[in-house]
Nucleic acid binder design. Structure first.
Lengths: 136, 136
DNA sequence: TACTATTCCTACCAAATTAATATGATATAA
DNA sequence: TTATATCATATTAATTTGGTAGGAATAGTA
């Protein structure tokens, strides 16, 4: 399962996409509209900014807007930033690979083969962008 | 990500399938061959027995063997028993459905639509059986 | 200048989950 | 009777999750 952070992050990006008209949108507005706990949302927004998905404007009338083109922000990317791997087992992950301690031969491992297949099926769906998502 | 329990459970079932010739196989043998901590494995085996995947034979020369036909034991089923939902968000799960607190309209939710799609792509792969898996 | 609305930062915290371990009772083949 | 097993319950240490607290820094506006 994904964490709430990821779901909140995606909701936030969708909200910004649907309501962003040039002016930045404050965490308070997002929090109230999407029912995300304010302080928790701040953390998530910081993470998105640090990863160059969003940019922030400080001070009164400040808030957040896209830094990266929403057309190029994928759900997979958000999951990787917020939660980590897409793959269901670590030895199958591209970005967060880890060797299985108990595994003697990774190449012949039947379980690995299955989860490679699974990841390969999952990726095209998760590679949809925020703008794709809005059209669903 | 899946838990180690799930991976150990699948490994255990594959081992039983590949080495089961009528006689039960002990937890000790499985533990040593698959490098699964013995006591941890005992817990997993109990769970599989309680869910009618395996049956046990007590006493010396005892051990575990299939109760359910390995042809009909799917990876999805094992995940559900050991970890819970297949779906990546709770509002999309068949067997472990939970409403999102922050969601106003589940039907129109774009995020939900995406993860319904994802689950629908994942299921056929995870519905493979232990015998299918062995053939990979 | 003072006020207010905002982001930014570090740290903290409670509850749940994960990955085991410990201890010992019970059953059975040889 | 002994060795080999399963069976059952409880405990535990580490990590993750889902937040919260408090305040500093920044900037628009009266």
């Amino acid at each position: 399962m994904l964490s709430k952070r990821v779901k909140y992050a995606i909701k936030t990006l969708l909200f910004l996409y649907e309501n962003g008209d040039g002016k930045p949108i404050s965490a308070k507005i997002i929090s109230e509209n999407e029912k995300i706990p304010y302080k928790f949302l701040e953390n998530i927004l910081r993470e998105l900014r640090q990863n160059k998905i969003l940019k922030s404007v400080r001070g009164a009338e400040g808030g957040y807007k896209f830094l990266k083109d929403p057309n190029e922000i994928t759900v997979a990317e958000i999951i990787r930033i917020v939660d980590g791997p897409i793959a269901l087992i670590p030895c199958v992950s591209f970005y967060f690979y880890e060797k299985c301690e108990d595994c003697t031969d990774e190449i012949s491992c039947k379980i690995r083969k299955l989860f490679v297949q699974l990841r390969n099926e999952m990726l095209p769906i998760l590679n949809k962008s925020i703008t794709d998502l809005e059209k669903l």
